[in-house]
């Protein structure tokens, strides 16, 4: 079975900018990620106190999903397990791993923190998105040296073909020390991205990923 898939929305967060569906939505004044993401959280009036408990990787991906899915209810549209979340990055949870390691470096001051440790897995981000948007579907987190649009298109396409998903949130969410980069795509069988339908293929994904903001 062959399906034609569309990018019905996308969200980019990089260089203190937030862009969704081709519109620049927010430019932060703060340079440091911690401050920038808090500013964005307040700007978009998210109102989800658990956000403050998340690590930086989860904050970044959560925020991108928040704007990607604005005014959408995928649980209603596709059933509770119809939407998949397929993410990748290069550093896994290394950013938080380093923080956790600090808490155990000194045997004389040895207080490993459970709330930091829990975020030393990259897929926790998918848990945070799933909880927020009530999504129970297919989940996978891959680690790759760089954003691999071919793999993403091939993997997500076969998930649709084999009817494992009817809708998919996919993309790249990277957090490594002071470097961050997030691009999320909402992939559906039908979709309208502002001025026209954008087919979910390698070229379009690369074009969006390479947008300079």
């Amino acid at each position: 079975m062959s399906v034609s898939l569309h990018i019905s929305n996308f969200c980019l967060i990089r260089n203190n900018h937030v862009m969704a569906g081709k519109h620049l939505l927010f430019t932060g004044k703060e340079i440091a990620f911690q401050d920038f993401i808090k500013e964005a959280y307040q700007h978009f009036k998210i109102g989800y106190p658990k956000f403050y408990k998340m690590d930086n990787l989860s904050k970044l991906g959560f925020m991108a999903a928040e704007l990607l899915l604005k005014d959408r209810d995928l649980n209603r549209d596709y059933g509770k397990d119809g939407t998949g979340i397929i993410l990748a990055n290069a550093a896994a949870s290394l950013d938080t791993d380093r923080n956790y390691q600090i808490s155990i470096n000194d045997r004389n001051n040895y207080f490993p923190s459970p709330s930091v440790f829990v975020y030393t897995l990259p897929n926790i981000l998918m848990g945070e998105i799933s909880i927020r948007h009530h999504l129970f579907g297919e989940n996978a987190f891959f680690i790759q040296k760089k954003f691999d649009s071919l793999f993403m298109v091939e993997y997500v396409t076969q998930l649709f073909e084999k009817q494992i998903v009817a809708c998919c949130i996919t993309g790249w969410v990277e957090m490594d020390a002071d470097q961050y980069d997030a691009v999320l795509f909402l992939v559906e069988k039908t979709g309208q991205l502002n001025d026209g339908i954008t087919i979910f293929n390698v070229r379009n994904i690369d074009d969006i990923y390479c947008l300079k903001i």
Binding site: D81, V118, I124, F136
Partner: peptide
């Protein structure tokens, strides 16, 4: 097979 999420709690 299938991999899913509880959408309930992170730990």
């Amino acid at each position: 097979g299938f991999s899913s999420n509880d959408a309930n709690h992170i730990s």
